[in-house]
Simulated scan of single mutants.
Amino acid sequence: MPNSLNPLELIARRWQPSAAFVRRAALATVVMAVIIVVTGGAVRLSQSGLGCSTWPKCTPDSLTPTAAMGINGLIEFGNRMLTDVLCVVIGVFIIAARARHPRRRSLTRLGWAQFWLVMTNAVVGGITVLTGLNPYIVSSHFLAATGLLTVAVLSWKRACEGDETPRELVARPVRQLTWLLVGSAAALTVIGTVVTGAGPHAGDAKKVHRIPLDWQEITQLHVDFVYIVVGLTVALWFTLRAVKAPAAPRRMVLELLACLALQGVVGYVQYFMGLPEIVIGLHMLGSALVWICVLRVSLSLRERGPLLEEDPDEAAADEPGAPEPQSAPALSR
């Protein structure tokens, strides 16, 4: 009976989104994941990490910031509210993916994975506040946001392709080189969080515990991994040319190289200018964009067939000469 159906099933029976709408919804989750990364950095760089003194409320007596908390309370609370916007965007993607026919369970699973990652990261964010910006928790908070961005990119990719068995476009050694690039880029991101935990921008004007490492030495290690990632990217581009790989992967490698070049310029500018907050914010944006490019390069080396833009049953019914659908015979009384 219809009344026993779950809400997503009821929506699926009344609304049929286009494949383009599902793709746009998936892309919106990627955009929101990047915004969450950047605004989270803005909270730290504006020394608003403890703008709300507790969690889940902003103060022990108020859910929202008070006038006495000033701009720091507004910034921290605003970042919390962005989580609600992110949940709405992910919810739209889940509903659109579920309502789309034929049903693609892989898309709905990826959508729910994003939702639970958001919920997990919200709890980690609360622990961050309750522990007074413990640098290790702060680092895990950023890595969880990067995990969300990863699943969002996977969702976007799956929304743009079919459901055939994946077919590799290059030989295994080339894939191994790509995975080495992905692993190096992931290590680069992790080391970047250590630089954050040991560096001067603690996230609050008060004295905050830092990771007991020389942040300049960790920064040098971070730079070393940048060179490794750049070297692997160049090597991959020449390799793809040598094996005559399709144009799309080679174009995406060039996009990654361009993004790495811009990120390198921003990195050196922030170092030689004494780590100004606005430049560090741009560096965090660049970090998210580099990771997106790395994932797109890896995902471009296999294909899963074309995406069906419409329901095959509806397409067949629209063909000239197709028989009219028959109504069910009336039951005799």
Rank of each mutant, 00 (worst) to 15 (best):
S140V: 15
A171M: 00
D214C: 13
R304P: 01
L240R: 02
I218Y: 06
G111I: 02
R103F: 13
T29E: 04
P312H: 03
M119P: 07
S155L: 12
G41E: 01
V230C: 03
W15I: 14
G78S: 09
P17R: 09
L169S: 00
F93V: 02
V265N: 08
W156I: 08
W112T: 09
E309C: 08
A242Q: 08
N134H: 12
M252Q: 15
L8V: 10
T54E: 12
Y268T: 12
V22K: 04
R241F: 05
Q114R: 10
T146A: 14
F238I: 06
Q47C: 06
A171P: 00
T165W: 11
E314P: 13
L232D: 01
K157W: 10
P306Q: 00
V92R: 11
M32E: 05
V279C: 07
I90W: 13
S298L: 00
V208T: 15
V37A: 11
G111Q: 01
P17A: 12
A67R: 09
S155M: 08
R302G: 06
A202H: 11
P17C: 06
L117H: 06
L10Q: 15
I137K: 02
Q176D: 02
L10E: 06
P312S: 10
L213Q: 09
T59D: 01
M119S: 06
R172E: 03
S62D: 11
V243P: 00
V31I: 14
A122I: 15
R44D: 07
A205W: 11
L8M: 12
V30P: 09
V34D: 05
L45E: 02
L180F: 08
K57Q: 12
R167Y: 04
G73H: 03
D84S: 12
I127C: 07
I228V: 15
T196G: 11
R210F: 11
S62W: 07
L27T: 02
C58H: 09
L133N: 08
Q263L: 04
L236N: 07
L262K: 03
F142N: 09
L50M: 10
V88M: 11
I90T: 12
M69P: 04
G286F: 00
L177H: 00
G267V: 01
F225K: 05
D204N: 13
T150R: 12
I36R: 01
W116A: 09
D224I: 15
S287N: 02
E217T: 15
Y271W: 14
T66F: 08
G70S: 04
L188M: 10
G70N: 07
G125Y: 01
A288P: 04
Q16P: 03
L27A: 01
L181Q: 02
H101E: 14
R241L: 14
E168Q: 01
V253W: 05
G125N: 05
L177D: 03
G199V: 00
H201E: 15
V243A: 02
R333E: 15
Y136R: 14
I35S: 10
H201P: 13
M273D: 11
